[in-house]
Design a protein around this nucleic acid. Sequence first.
DNA 1: CCTAGTCGAGACGCAACCGTTCCGTCTCGG
DNA 2: CCGAGACGGAACGGTTGCGTCTCGACTAGG
Lengths: 185, 185
Amino acid sequence: MLQGAVTDAIRTAFLEELAEVGYGRLSLEAVARRAGSGKAAIYRRWPSKEAVTIDLIAQVSFAATDTPDTGTLRGDVLAFLTAVDAALRHPLVSRILPDLFAAGIHHPDIADSLRDRVGGAGREKAVSVLRRAVERGELAPDTDFELGLDLLAGPLYWNTTVRQAPADPARLQRLADKVVAALAA
Amino acid sequence: MLQGAVTDAIRTAFLEELAEVGYGRLSLEAVARRAGSGKAAIYRRWPSKEAVTIDLIAQVSFAATDTPDTGTLRGDVLAFLTAVDAALRHPLVSRILPDLFAAGIHHPDIADSLRDRVGGAGREKAVSVLRRAVERGELAPDTDFELGLDLLAGPLYWNTTVRQAPADPARLQRLADKVVAALAA
DNA sequence: CCTAGTCGAGACGCAACCGTTCCGTCTCGG
DNA sequence: CCGAGACGGAACGGTTGCGTCTCGACTAGG
């Protein structure tokens, strides 16, 4: 029974340790201590710290939710921004995500996993928002999706995760207006 | 003569080491080795790894250049985006910056230094771009500067530093158009 | 020419982790 | 009821980094 309580305890401990000390200084010794397990229990499941990390990224991305069709681009954009903003503000995510992106610079496997799982999940949601808008006629058929994705994700990631600004729903409203204008340009 | 060749060698070695292994795994032992100095030479100048980091952030931010007045908002925005994009693509900066932001989560002093020196420098440039546009009448006097800064910095940081996308001048042109539209909205 | 201060080098004791191995215990499925 | 196997725990030898300290060499200014 390799998939059980011990596995979950290790995963949780790993995440908490990641949030506290960061990827670079995380030790499996401390994870085992926190999980109340032996180190062998970890090595029995994963070959390395990097492997645990990649596994966790895959797990977490499962939690990605869908963005509803609100009927208008503006509504869809606001819903997307609100959902992503909330996700970025999750206590563990907000502490871990910048660390993982930084770790990705030194560990290509982590970068790949992040691109596929985190980037990919958000990307699909954003694409469907843009695609629906094109179908409604709110956006031109030749709309630059790549640029649109940057406009949807960038300001949010910068303000929320990098600058660590406090939550502000009204600001999201205004940001949605700006983003819609940019998309239409 | 505490300010001399040795000091510079240590600073350079610290930066290179930072780029290679990241903040968390950086050791002053390795820095001394790379600098061709003794560890004591480092401790004679700074009390800790954190202090060296903060000192370096302050130094580097001096390199920030001015953004010229091109006469139009669109021109100013493009100049700003181009300058920041180039800065973010600097081989050392691109590897170090995400690491420093991640380190800031666990070390408030580093976060403060980043906010003041890196954020502050870019911020002043961006504000002057927006202020000039208001004076020209290209933007409304009640333009939301805070949001404008996110729109100027966010998409770039996301695409260039986080996603590590390759350079693309044409894309910057199109991004400038989008950003101008967003600012005016 | 002397002396004060920095220099590179590296040893010091200490602590943390590494990944592995071995305990004795406990819990299952057969 | 027994054997297989995972369990927590602890120890293994080895590596790395810490911050301090002591060398003898080099280089100033006086």
